[in-house]
Design a binder for these strands. Structure first.
Lengths: 337, 337
DNA sequence: TCAAGGCTGGCAAACGGTTGCCATTCCTGT
DNA sequence: ACAGGAATGGCAACCGTTTGCCAGCCTTGA
């Protein structure tokens, strides 16, 4: 082969443009990144030449002086959890629209890795969106003081956040089950350090209490579909006729296992999931679940973050709450007599 | 609230270490990034102080001079396509292990966006892994000449690649169907500009030909599950008793639609997917599909890329082929009489 | 004893932008 | 006609590291 490896074609810099236009490099810089600071005619000229030379600003040089990187990190505990699809999609679109780079980071369910990565990244990002962080309240607040941050599905004072109103969704689910005649409802718990898990559990307890019914809780079951088997087995040993699972991944895992063991769903047991993730509509039976506008959550989170980055205003620490609703499919039915 | 926004604690730089140890900044730099270049005792001292001050090198400053960014971009056509799960996981692990940053980019199925993003990113990454690129052969080769590149599931001369041996897998699938008595097999085609799509089709034609059977092709159907309905409808209008779909997403979409229309699977029609993606084992009926070691593909791709980046050796342009195999589940059965 | 050469460490110039500050020009209003 | 100030452009320092080059010093072998 005669084509040499990586022919480094000399990159066009701001100086090349300066030379070509006769202006100083500083003027070129301003023309390109501070519109109002130079004469309109001058800017036009510079922009034209920049385009002609197909100039691409060097991110690193810029970051070095200005501190701005135009990059936002999105931290999820596991990229391959379909729950994050919508979030990733939402943040991605919104960030791309704003000209930001989307840095997706998988924290592998570890809070330690989370804060460690973040401190290492500190200089490479302008801000971060933390989805279902495993960090302690204190740590999260500390981090938020150092770095513009928006948390998703996690509420901590001092940290901006967008949360999905699962509580009211879970209440809906409970009503749904109760109206179908179920009296023994159990909650299949997710990871202990999950904020959403606790929120869901509490809200189920409250909803059931309104009807004078007790609820029990099984678990915790770690994230992941494998846990479904254990969860299903545990459930069978109870007198429950219905369950609400921490999330769809767990619920689907249970469905598979219940089918294996010949337990009819929803004839013998009704199953409700959470999140309406990819697959909930084509598993068997299709899953009754709590749908959340997670893609929108991603977009809102990005908007909040960008507002914070752009406006010099301190921004009132706010928190957006997005509504959820129950989608009834085939996995729930009347309680057996 | 009294805690000020973003208390920029002064970052520790190489100069702070220089001052603390009495050495020059250049020596500190070398101690940290070029082990053999300084006295062992000196280095130890410097490393100790660096740790004590919890020094974190500034990525941008480094990138600016050295050109190295320790970042690899992984381009996929759609992050939310479960097919990429394994790939993302594989590349991520391998890159993290090597201390590299994993920059995931969604090209939104557009070749234009792909090359555009890449040229913009050029300076921010050391190399790229392109999964199922939509780029033309020529463009891809051009890019590879400018930037270390490894293509996944795409074979172009002059570009290193790792491909999944779907041809032999498709052949297996064909044999499977034929042995079940199917004589009218159709291929549900994916996007036209997909290399894998063509490879699969050709190999199906060849396999069927060995048995003296003709095969037809329907489509193309764009990527995405929505296409499944159209595909199923198209299929019903033929005399086919079995089909092989371009990928599982399409196959699952078809399954849903067939069920809606009351067509029994596999009693009336057998369906085979490709990729064994997330969901193939819990859809209804569970999907017979072609499993590929996609996570391993990601790891191999990263290994190839890193080898290329580290060894000054030009690296013989090679291509790894990974085996695939058929997983038989419930969506295939004997041909109806 | 001395030249050759390997080790080490320091100096200073990049890398490609950004930005504080200053100089010049051109308006304004009085 | 003139002071005050906005608009515009240039100068040069700086961001934090890397790296080519040079200068001592210490070995070594002749």
């Amino acid at each position: 082969m005669d084509n040499r490896d990586n022919v480094q074609r000399p990159r066009v810099t701001i100086n090349d443009i300066a030379e070509a236009t006769g202006f100083a490099a500083s003027t070129v810089s301003r023309a390109l990144s501070r519109p109002g600071r130079v004469n309109a005619a001058t800017r036009e000229r510079i922009v034209a030449v920049a385009r002609e030379l197909s100039y691409v600003p060097n991110t690193h040089a810029r970051a070095l002086t200005s501190g701005r990187t135009e990059t936002v990190a999105v931290l999820v505990s596991d990229v391959t959890n379909p729950f994050y699809f919508g979030l990733i999609r939402g943040t991605q679109h919104q960030l791309k629209a704003a000209g930001y780079t989307h840095l997706l980071i998988d924290t592998e369910n570890s809070g330690e890795l989370e804060s460690h990565t973040l401190s290492k990244m500190r200089q490479s990002i302008d801000g971060a969106i933390m989805a279902t962080s495993r960090l302690s309240r204190r740590l999260l607040a500390e981090l938020a003081a150092e770095l513009p941050l928006v948390a998703v599905n996690r509420m901590v004072r001092g940290v901006e956040s967008v949360v999905l109103d699962s509580p009211s969704g879970v209440a809906q689910a409970a009503e749904h089950l109760i109206s179908l005649g179920h009296r023994e409802i159990v909650y299949m718990s997710g990871p202990q350090n999950s904020w959403a898990n606790e929120a869901r559990w509490r809200s189920l307890v409250a909803a059931a209490a309104r009807h004078g019914l007790p609820v029990h809780r099984l678990g915790p079951f770690p994230a992941g579909r494998m846990s479904g088997s254990a969860a299903a087995d545990a459930l069978i040993n109870t007198r429950a006729t219905a369950c609400i699972a921490f999330n769809d991944l767990l619920a689907i895992g249970m469905l598979t296992r219940l089918r294996e063991r010949g337990v009819g769903v929803p004839d013998e047991i009704s199953v409700v999931g959470c999140d309406d993730m990819f697959g909930a509509d084509f598993c068997y039976p299709t899953l009754t679940t709590l749908a959340a506008p997670i893609e929108q959550a991603g977009r809102v989170a990005v908007s909040m973050l960008l507002a914070r980055l752009h406006d010099s205003a301190p921004a009132t620490r706010q928190s957006a709450v997005l509504p959820t609703h129950l989608i009834v499919r085939e996995s729930t039915g009347p309680a057996p007599r």
